[in-house]
């Protein structure tokens, strides 16, 4: 194992901001900001629909503000079309069935010391690692 491209400072800064965003959503709206739930509820449920759509809009505005402040964003998606489709389907189906993703289980759930969320987080990291091991980066 070699360690490469490690950016602990920007990762920690981004993480602190994400935690703060989740905290704001919690104290103002009383809800946990799990992105998969917000996203799937935005079209499957009518409750809080506008709130959910505005949160998603915010997610899209975030990177735009970041690049407007003069920073460059690196984002490379190299997969073939079939892989993108299969990946999208698996992420959608999986987070819906598990009721959460990296933010809902990984950040909110782990912060609450929920055993259910800790098990989910370990599960998706594990299968993610195995998938990369098999298919490569």
């Amino acid at each position: 194992m070699n360690i490469i491209n490690f950016t602990p400072l920007s990762a920690l800064t981004g993480g602190l901001l994400i935690g703060f965003a989740v905290f704001l959503f919690f104290i103002f709206n009383g809800r946990l900001a799990g992105v998969s739930s917000v996203a799937s509820d935005s079209f499957l449920k009518s409750t809080n629909r506008i709130d959910n759509l505005l949160f998603l809009l915010g997610l899209i505005i975030g990177p735009i503000l970041y690049s407007l402040s003069g920073n460059e964003i690196e984002s490379v998606l190299t997969n073939s079309l079939p892989l993108i489709i299969i990946g999208g389907l698996l992420v959608g189906v999986g987070t819906k069935i598990a009721n959460g993703c990296t933010s809902g289980h990984g950040v909110c759930g782990v912060s609450r010391f929920s055993i259910r969320s800790i098990v989910a987080t370990i599960s998706f990291i594990l299968t993610g690692v195995v998938t990369v091991l098999i298919f490569g980066v």
Binding site: I86, G94, A120, S123, F124, I125, T127, V132
Partner: peptide, 10 residues
């Protein structure tokens, strides 16, 4: 669900 999600993520 979490396992399927992890595969798509990976």
């Amino acid at each position: 669900g979490a396992s399927l999600f992890g595969i798509g993520w990976g």
